[in-house]
Amino acid sequence: MDNHTTNVLVVGVGGQGVILASDIMSEVFMEAGYDVKKSEIHGMAMRGGIVSSHFRFGKKVHSPLIMEGEADILFAFEQLEGLRWLNFLQPKARIIMNDHKVNPPIVNLGEMEYPQGIPEIIGSKFKDFYLVKGTEIALQIGDARAANVVLLGAMSTFFDIKEELWLDTILNYLPPKVHELNRKAFATGRGEIHQA
């Protein structure tokens, strides 16, 4: 293992399962033998606010926070949130983004527009960019809440870690009655990246 620490920024909106996804990722990488730290702010964020989780793995990790301009991977569960965090990325960062929009209150009030063409903006600045229909796929499978597992499936293809470790860790966090659904969500998510 080299001394490099990999920085993953997981972002979205309260209620989307951002924290669960970063919990699962941290555990997968700990089991794979890395030192791991992750951090996020709960509290008021659970009322529909912005959620951002910093997740770092490597040989020895000191800070639980990623420095601006140094995130290697952006894992965005919502388009506007993906756009909001671009300045945290290093120039060659990889972006995996859910193709989904959640209006902030100010947009609901009609006082600001939801930005148009976010995937195009991101694609023009970062080449290593993947748009995944996580929420749409999860709805097709049967439950919008499985979107985070679809996205984890997509994310998992970028690391040299056994598929079983990912799946076992995910299922460990979920009640048995939704295991079948989430197996399917994970497998479908993995397929999405191969097609991209």
Binding site: G14, I50, L80, E81, L83, P104, I121, K125
Partner: peptide, 12 residues
């Protein structure tokens, strides 16, 4: 890399 003002998302 991106400097436009974006809609905020305060808790609600």
């Amino acid at each position: 890399v991106f400097e436009e003002a974006l809609p905020p998302r305060p808790p609600n």
